[in-house]
Design a protein around this nucleic acid. Structure first.
Lengths: 204, 204, 204, 204
DNA sequence: AATGAATGAGTGTTCATTCAT
DNA sequence: CATGAATGAACACTCATTCAT
């Protein structure tokens, strides 16, 4: 690739990114269904037609925005899982670490998560299915850890329920935290959350 | 009111109900935004125009369907709260009782709750706000109980976080239970859920 | 026809009349196009379905209301024409007599005339054509008199224009008189109008 | 503004104009209420959606078409009034001048005037009120002149009635002249009309 | 005859997407 | 690539008329 081509490639990527950021902000405010392509391009300072040089449809921007969320959420969990096994970290520290990572992630991607958590299920059936699939996959990953935890002193329990409690809690509590504009001190949030979940999961 | 008028009154209520049921089912399947009035009337076996003899807009049916949910959820909690104070019921039994009531309620209104939990936030900003308001009110009610629980041996904790954990858990877990078509035995679900939440909340 | 049948005939006519009166009032207020059958039946204290036992369509009521207007306007003119020829009444008295009759007629049928004068042309092409036809027929009648007037000292003039001036004036001025709720004294109106038209028509 | 932008500005104005002309012609033929947006765009050779790039509603086109009529009618009158005072023109010449201007104006805007005169009152109450307001304002202007005319030898009369006669006559006679496709020679029309109105107004 | 629920064709407006410039 | 005008399918809602009771 020539230097010139490479440069244009970069510019193209930047423009695409600009659209993603603009769309994200409008989706978050108005919701997918009430967002007009014009709203996005206006925010980006370009024209309607131009948008279609970078995305083939309104759905595509949405999907790009959402894509990666699943990996992000699950990735964090896997990190913990790995760390946990390798380093024999005590569960409480491990969980706190995880939640610190989550707090950072939710802060960095607050709009995206709000869209995912609050809106995605209501856009259409396809996205509702996708949303549930993401949550289910996430829960399955969590479930595996719950099972492993028995070795570390978790009490006997139905791991499906426990895993669902964990994911519901994480998603629900962080959703509230984002919506409240991170009002509650991060340390307090994480300490309380961890305490609750660990007590709920482990034996005394 | 004449006998004739009373009869027609009843028939009218039944027809209205038929529309509510039809709409509920179509909303659940296609989502509000992708539901056409014709879908509803087809399912009800009537004509488009007739729908508007019973509801003044598509939004109205939706609102009638959703209305009452908040009261229902909060009502159950208040029942517990009252019972709990009056009868000095041990927390575990009280919570199990509550969840039995919830299980019944979610079963009876599964489509409505699915719409509320999964779709409502994505329809438009108005409904997103309403959804969050309902959840927040619910959480506030729960918070009051959490605070009372200290008398009964709850450990020191941030009640806002704990309340949020409870509501997130209840909504998230029951959402999954509905979606999975109640696959897991009700007793197992309730026992595990109760166990988790009580341990998370109370001191050892 | 039996007595019973005759009685029911009368009742039927009364009901029909009630509808005509109700429709007239609603048409005048809302205009034909923005009048709903329900508006008419509500005013009449009956039901939508009942209306169609008396009229076969919304247009029919309108046509019945308007029908007769043409004859009424032209009839008055013919009366004058006849009187005038037979009795050699001086023009000024004849015209004043005519206008007195007109004033009475416009007062008695004010809503009907308002509909005819202000609204009829805007309902649809058919009624616009009818409206113009009525006005043209009226003008033709007037034209005949204008021509005769030469014998009585009218100056030379194009009778088509003069006739058009007369009808435009009569319709325009009485329209205003009705709209202003007959504020101006009838005598003053008639005296001035007559004076103007006669001076405009006759030689000095 | 760039040359390119200026060009597009001009094209846009032309397209808007095309719509105005198309709408005018369809309104005149079918009437406002029976005109479909599709009728307008078909006549303009464009698509339905495109119409809404130029006008925000069907009512807007109508209002743009009608707007200016009032000013036009009254403007002509004021011209005369001014001329008349300044130049001490004898009334007959002044009136003839005015009517020549009116004839030209009605010819140039025949469809618009037909819509205003025949249809506007029947579209809906709002437009009926507007129509009457325009006519009343026009009449008030005329009334002022009538009052001034006394200095120039007008006989004593009720100026409200006389003004109403003038406007009714002008609107009624020109309405007919337009409808008859200007059959009558302009000079003949104006001479007769002027003669009539001046005789009616002035003393011998 | 009276009622008012039922019907369904009809219409203004929106908006994702395309395309000429 | 950029622009924004052009396209037309889609849809909520209306209302004259019909019809079962």
């Amino acid at each position: 690739m020539s230097l010139r081509a490479k440069k244009s490639e970069i510019i193209k990527k930047e423009k695409r990114n600009l659209y993603l950021i603009s769309a994200l902000s409008v989706f978050e405010e108005k919701g997918f269904n009430n967002t007009r392509i014009k709203d996005i391009t206006k925010k980006a300072g370009t024209s309607v037609g131009n948008f279609y040089n970078y995305f083939k449809s309104k759905e595509e921007v949405f999907e790009v925005i959402i894509s990666g969320l699943a990996e992000l959420m699950i990735g964090k969990f896997r990190e913990l899982f790995f760390y946990f096994q390798e380093n024999k970290i005590p569960p409480i520290s491990a969980v706190k670490n995880l939640f610190r990572g989550y707090a950072k992630m939710f802060k960095a991607k607050k709009e995206t998560f709000l869209i995912f958590l609050e809106q995605m299920g209501g856009i259409n059936s396809k996205y509702r299915a996708k949303r549930n699939e993401i949550i289910d996959n996430f829960t399955n990953e969590v479930e595996e850890i719950i099972i492993k935890l028995e070795e570390f002193g978790a009490r006997y329990q139905n791991p499906k329920v426990t895993a669902r409690v964990w994911t519901s809690t994480v998603l629900g509590v962080f959703n509230w935290w984002i919506r409240s504009d991170f009002e509650l001190e991060e340390k307090e949030l994480i300490d309380n959350l961890t305490d609750f979940l660990v007590r709920g999961t482990m034996t005394d």
